[in-house]
Simulated scan of single mutants.
Amino acid sequence: MTNDRRVLIHNDKSALAASIAARFLTKVVDLLDEQDRVNIVLEGGRVALDVLTQINANPARDTVDWSRVHFWWGDERYVPAGHEDRNDAKARTALLDHIAIPASNIHPMPSTDSGLEIGAAAEAYASELTDHADGDGSLPRFDITFLGVGPDGHTASLFPDHPQVLEKSSLVLPVTDSPKPPAERLTLTRPALNSSQRIWVEIAGAEKASSLGLALAGAAYSEVPIAGIKGRRRTVFFVDREAAAEVPENLIAQSY
């Protein structure tokens, strides 16, 4: 696993979302030239929604062969399907309902409608991941994983000082006491996230500056979970100027 971390600073939230969207489309086209399929892990949050909206609006959207792209989620609120709180519902409205992608390529985490107890729901998603594993592994090859960061440094639904952030073997875990509502969630674990080839972290706002600075300075991931997330090939923090206030100068990249 590489320790190559880069920070790309954008003037504002709008420029940030547009830049990530353009880079994403270019990268997916390049990856599809090299391999049969591409696996993308999506996240929730306001920046993530802006990015998906920008991808949908980009003229290059339809240059992607979406039939060879699979979408997964890093975490999800354990509420009914279609609920406004669900990350997959927001992603469908912003992008997935507008592209030529087979329904079988979209892999939402279970909802309460599944009839599964939350622990069984986590196991069911882990099984689906394993069913689509590449090679001899237990996971698909995550080519790009999008992650956000909370003011407390949490990412996906891995929260500071919660047991899920310390998990070393499971792929998916239930969360029943999230400090942010709703209390019940499903989340990929740190080992699952760190299997990703590329992790793209999207951060905007002054309230995120402290947690980003701590993460890049080497804080313990039990206290600042995003500090423990690293892609196998590359980890890029796409941030606006407000969020970049405490980023060490030596980590600021001039280009991707």
Rank of each mutant, 00 (worst) to 15 (best):
H107D: 09
E249W: 01
T187D: 02
R190Q: 07
D136A: 14
G74W: 03
A89F: 06
W200N: 04
L31M: 15
L116F: 03
H70C: 10
L42T: 07
H10F: 15
E123A: 14
Q35K: 15
K90V: 01
T53K: 14
W72P: 03
I9E: 08
S255V: 04
G115S: 04
H70T: 01
N105A: 11
A133W: 07
A244M: 10
T112L: 07
S222L: 02
E223M: 04
H70A: 07
L25C: 08
F71S: 05
A91H: 08
P191W: 06
I226V: 15
L32K: 04
D36C: 11
V28A: 02
D136Y: 01
L95I: 06
A94C: 10
I252K: 12
T53S: 15
G44W: 07
R185V: 01
D50Y: 00
D85F: 06
A81Y: 02
N250R: 11
L31W: 10
D88V: 09
D65P: 06
I40Q: 12
D134S: 14
R68I: 08
A81H: 11
L8V: 12
A100E: 10
A133M: 10
V239T: 15
I99F: 09
R77V: 11
R68K: 14
P248C: 03
S19I: 02
K208D: 09
R241Q: 15
L96E: 09
S255D: 12
R233Q: 15
L129K: 08
G45P: 05
V247A: 07
V29N: 12
I226A: 09
G231C: 08
I203K: 02
E223P: 00
E128W: 00
L16Q: 05
E123R: 10
N105K: 09
I226H: 08
L188S: 08
I101D: 05
L147F: 01
A126M: 03
